[in-house]
């Protein structure tokens, strides 16, 4: 059981979740994740560790509501307990001095990229941070990210003063202009990660992506999270979640993430119907 310390809406549909988990906080490294279950009936879902505080003994994640588990999670209150909260899982990201590191994040990835930017910065890199939002009002943690970056670029598709573009196009522009970038690290939806990897491919810039296949146990026991990287099949929960974006079989990942579309819709309807029934009583 892990007690919820804080839950707050950051922007529409995106929430911050701070959980009391001193053992996880003590061991957490950038790039790792936790697996939690919102309630006894819930699914085990992975969330990236977006921050942690050893003194308070807490771990923070940022999540986007997309289905039943995340909708349930959006409804928790401080003091509630999560029946499962386990971590830190996955291999920590490789943090070292590379020169200029470009950190790119979208949706929940604005939060998830934070500990990476901070660690790259601490390792002496010049950190350029790209934040991808559909609209300005969906931007959060900007100050936090500015504090650990040398440059922050906000790429928003509603901003009159900025070109209408995806992060990957901006990345491409930057590289075409001859900007020196030594490493790229992307966290966000599959589209964001695959398009950034395509943008850097011609320049052979090492591009690390934090993959998000469907997981179950998170300890290497089930193989649900298998992804094809290069010639090999890897288990993202124990061999990753970081992989070389130029070697990932993106089509397979896209497909596998959609394995349960029908069931997910059914589950959400079922749960919402229950919530409305309970509210009606």
């Amino acid at each position: 059981m892990a007690k919820i310390v804080q839950k707050k809406k950051l922007v529409p549909n995106i929430y911050l979740l701070e959980v009391e988990a001193p053992e996880v906080a003590k061991k957490a490294r950038p790039g790792q994740f936790v697996i939690l279950m919102p309630d006894e009936f819930g699914e085990r879902i992975p969330l990236t560790i977006a921050d942690w505080d050893i003194k308070r003994g807490t771990v923070t994640s940022v999540f986007m509501v997309v289905g039943t588990s995340t909708a349930k999670l959006a409804g928790v209150r401080p003091g509630d307990e999560l029946p499962v909260y386990v971590g830190p899982l996955g291999r920590p990201s490789e943090i070292d001095y590379f020169g200029t590191v470009l950190c790119a994040g979208g949706c929940f990835g604005l939060g998830a990229i934070f500990p990476l930017a901070r660690a790259y910065k601490q390792a002496g890199n010049r950190v350029v941070t790209f934040l991808d939002v559909r609209a300005r009002y969906l931007l959060y943690w900007e100050e936090k990210l500015r504090a650990v970056s040398d440059e922050v670029h906000i790429i928003s598709r509603d901003d009159q003063n900025l070109p209408q573009e995806y992060i990957s196009w901006r990345l491409k522009n930057l590289l075409e202009q001859g900007r020196q970038v030594d490493r790229v690290h992307v966290v966000g939806c599959t589209y964001l990660m695959s398009s950034c990897a395509e943008a850097t491919r011609p320049y052979k810039i090492k591009t690390i992506v934090s993959l998000n296949p469907i997981m179950l146990d998170g300890t290497g026991m089930c193989g649900a999270c298998r992804v094809s990287v290069g010639e090999a099949t890897r288990f993202a929960c124990v061999d990753g979640p970081d992989f070389d974006g130029h070697l990932v079989d993106w089509n397979e990942l896209y497909a596998r993430r959609k394995a349960y579309l029908e069931e997910e819709t059914h589950s959400l309807c079922h749960w919402q119907a229950r919530v409305y029934e309970e509210e009606a009583i």
Partner: peptide, 17 residues
């Protein structure tokens, strides 16, 4: 594991499909 531990046989009462 889906069926036993996560009780997917009782989906959608349990969330795991």
């Amino acid at each position: 594991t889906r069926v036993n531990l996560m009780r997917a046989y009782d989906f959608p009462r349990y969330d795991t499909p």
